[in-house]
Amino acid sequence: MSIHGAIITGIGIMFLFLGNLGILRLPDVYNRVQAGTKCTTLGAFLTIIGVGIMQPGWFWKTLIIAVFILVTNPISSHAIARASLKAKVSLCDRSVVDKTEEFERYREKV
């Protein structure tokens, strides 16, 4: 059982590493939010579940922690990205489309 837990934790750590690599490599703040919060979703989830499988007595508690991470993670990444949008942080040169102005017109209509 502890082997399975160790393998799952290892996969989780790999995803955490890739998330950090993404923060270093990607060009602008929005893409970094993508890497920084998304790879860590699966990373943190698998790491914690892996610990729960290694110690079967903790399994349900680790599951609760994992569910709370899944529920709260989108809120933090959304808050960072929306704050950057409000502060008018520009997109990188490689961006292909930006429909923010179109969206602002909808806001004025409402």
Partner: peptide, 12 residues
Amino acid sequence: TLTPGTFTLDII
């Protein structure tokens, strides 16, 4: 937002 590659910025 949870699905990597896409996230929601705003909603009206």
